[in-house]
């Protein structure tokens, strides 16, 4: 009976937050585990991004593709089964639009982003490299302090993307930094390797011996909504500037269709003008005078 009680209690603790209480004294343990999974219909680029994230986050657990896009609340149960208290879920629509959910399971909050401009680690342009499982430094833009929803986002990112000290499979050194910056009301994700330049290779103007080389992946997160539950609940924030990719695509299409439409309009206008320009019959015209 006691073990059942213990289990329940620990479960409750996990659900409440990240603080694990041991006996009377409160010893803080940052316990985070992240469930990584995607919906069906994912394409290769998105899949590579997901594996990149999995490689970057040793406290992550990748799960199989989720069949349903409507009943997202079952992810909470999945996370529980995997002992995860965070979740990153890739929802792919139309095999091209990637939405990323970041959620604190099971009680929330959760955020939904539209992911754009994805470059994965597979690409050959980013030349950096780092240890697999080394803990990174998280770098946040100062803009994250500017308003409550950015603050909440920062807290969420710290817990999801920050690797806890107690995580398994971590390595003891720090050789990369992940940065989140806010430009254009979007969050830009970058991952850099930290390299130390020896003194003899530095110029006189170089004050710091650290240089960064980008590792990848890079992507842009456009926030859509913040919910107060995990994968649901009331909306606490909605991005007024967000334009659904479907709308954007249809706008482009309409703009292209506009060429034909404007041409037809111009023809119609011309006809009208010609009709208006017809002169009334002149009483002094030749046929009127001599008929």
């Amino acid at each position: 009976m006691a073990t059942v009680f213990k289990q329940q209690k620990s479960k409750q603790d996990k659900a409440e937050g990240v603080v694990a209480h041991t006996s009377e004294e409160k010893v803080f343990k940052n316990k985070q585990r992240v469930l990584l999974l995607s919906s069906r219909g994912i394409n290769s680029r998105h899949r590579h991004l997901l594996t990149d994230l999995e490689n970057l986050l040793p406290h992550g657990k990748k799960d199989a593709k989720l069949d349903s896009k409507s009943k997202l609340y079952i992810i909470n149960e999945l996370a529980d089964l995997n002992n995860c208290n965070n979740c990153v879920f890739f929802e792919v629509r139309k095999r091209q639009d990637l939405y990323m959910w970041i959620s604190k399971t099971p009680n929330g909050p959760s955020m939904k982003f539209h992911i754009q401009n994805i470059h994965t680690m597979e690409e050959l342009k980013m030349t950096g490299n780092c240890l697999k499982g080394s803990r990174h430094i998280l770098s946040f833009d100062k803009n994250f302090e500017s308003s409550p929803h950015w603050q909440l986002m920062k807290e969420l990112f710290t817990q999801v993307f920050g690797i806890p000290k107690t995580s398994r499979r971590i390595k003891p050194f720090i050789d990369h930094v992940i940065s989140f910056s806010i430009v254009d009301n979007r969050v830009w994700f970058r991952n850099y390797q930290i390299t130390e330049k020896p003194l003899e290779h530095r110029s006189a103007t170089d004050t710091t011996d650290l240089t960064l080389v980008e590792i990848g992946p890079r992507f842009v997160m456009n926030p859509i909504r913040t919910f107060d539950g995990s994968f649901g609940g009331q909306t606490a924030f909605e991005n007024p500037e967000f334009v659904s990719p479907n709308v954007a695509r249809s706008n482009i299409k309409n703009a292209k269709a506009g060429r034909y439409k404007s041409r037809m309009d111009a023809i119609a206008q011309k006809d009208e003008r010609l009709k208006e320009a017809e002169m009334p019959e002149d009483p002094l015209e030749e046929k009127n005078v001599f008929a």
Partner: peptide, 10 residues
């Protein structure tokens, strides 16, 4: 957490 907030806003 190893989280750093920049001193200057981007």
């Amino acid at each position: 957490t190893q989280s750093v907030t920049s001193t200057q806003a981007v």
